[in-house]
Design a protein around this nucleic acid. Structure first.
Lengths: 226, 226
DNA sequence: AATTATCCTGACCAAACGGTCAAGAACCGG
DNA sequence: CCGGTTCTTGACCGTTTGGTCAGGATAATT
């Protein structure tokens, strides 16, 4: 719907450094505001007016930078997918299962903590049937899962861990970690806390690591490997 | 906003049996349709027009029965909370931990399976910061959790299970089971399945039971208790 | 058959929706 | 100081929003 704007209309600036600084600042502000609003109300429920107010700009300005509501939404999803893809990108059969799973749980937990709005935005998209992400789910992400699942299976064959279904295991880790971003309101309401601090998150991470690793027949790498 | 309609305007019918049969049918239809639409788009994103079309009725008729969008939404939430409350309502310290946890996982999984739209409706509400449910979360549900947490702790004290934090454990079970309703689109996209059949659900339930129970130092009740 | 309560719905309303546009303001290297 | 680009924004458009209402259709009670 909107061409990515030619880097420079005439052959004036190849660096494009000092130029576009306003654009960068405003786009950053708009993206942050939009992430909050989309996360809270979903795609349909979010209004450009609300996003604009959250960003402290007139609605027209939001459209000037983002083209349309759909473009803005897609841009946020893509940004979140990039953060996602950086996770656990290089593991091999020769790695230690316990270490890998611990790293997986830890980094996924950190992702939920560092980008709670992005996590909720993603969750809302899936909840609504993933109209924008279906292709990604059944393509790129599916291959990502299958590759890791194969490694888990090989670990099981070598007797390094219990022969559990690797896909369900990945889903278990996803859901358990995602929960603390997506259901934050529930967690806070039930625990009575005002927010989850670093100490809480570390405690939860330790709990999840302990239970899930033990549940797969693994010993945490911090403990003596025997 | 809308009074619960006097059972009978005059003192005509105390049974109110044959009367109101149309109302029951239409309300059931509307509630089912609304649950789907609210689950998909959240409170703000759902439109009465869409709900009416889904129910095969004119918009005015939906408002005639439900009063307002807010009333309809609250009614759906309350219905879902009732299903919720029926879960694991009577456990005691003298029960077998493994049996209780297995029953918990199983019944929660069944709830997600039998009422996926209700599950997603609930998830969307929490995702949006639980504007309608905050009171319930920090009141009734909080007490529900605390009561069960206390029992888990006593089991741990008696050495019947590992001394894990009981609240995080409850959250783990919630998230892992809820996942298959809320993130159904993701699960289907990644597994490549068209839907999750009974066999799949049983398999997942068995996986979760196995990993979580073992992770807490419990042996599944189906196996020999030693 | 008359009456009354319930059910049904098209027409209508003000507000909010996503999006367009033109005209001006601010900034830029030359 | 100039000419061109980028930025800013209020006015505006057609559509959709949640909700009201009057009035006709239907069914139940007497």
């Amino acid at each position: 719907m909107r061409q990515p704007q030619a880097v420079s209309a005439r052959g004036t600036r190849e660096k494009g450094e000092a130029n576009g600084v306003t654009r960068q600042r405003n786009e950053r502000e708009i993206l942050a505001a939009a992430e909050r609003v989309f996360a809270r109300h979903g795609y349909r429920g979010a209004s450009l007016q609300a996003i604009a107010e959250e960003a402290g700009l007139p609605k027209s300005n939001v459209l000037y930078y983002m083209g349309s509501k759909g473009d803005l939404y897609v841009r946020l999803l893509e940004r979140m997918m990039m953060r996602w893809n950086a996770l656990l990108d290089d593991i091999s059969v020769d790695d230690d299962p316990a270490e890998v799973l611990e790293a997986f749980i830890h980094s996924k937990m950190q992702l939920s903590r560092r980008h709670p709005e992005g996590s909720r935005l993603f969750a809302a998209e899936i909840l609504g049937g993933a109209p924008f992400l279906q292709e990604y789910l059944s393509g790129e992400l599916r291959r990502w899962v299958q590759a890791r699942a194969r490694i888990f299976e090989q670990w099981a064959e070598r007797g390094l861990m219990d022969p559990v279904d690797p896909v369900w295991l990945i889903f278990l880790i996803w859901s358990a970690t995602q929960h603390y971003a997506d259901f934050e309101a529930q967690v806070l309401g039930i625990t009575g806390k005002g927010e989850l601090g670093d100490a809480d998150v570390e405690q939860i991470t330790a709990f999840l690591t302990r239970v899930i690793l033990k549940g797969c027949g693994l010993t945490p790498p911090s403990a003596a490997p025997g």
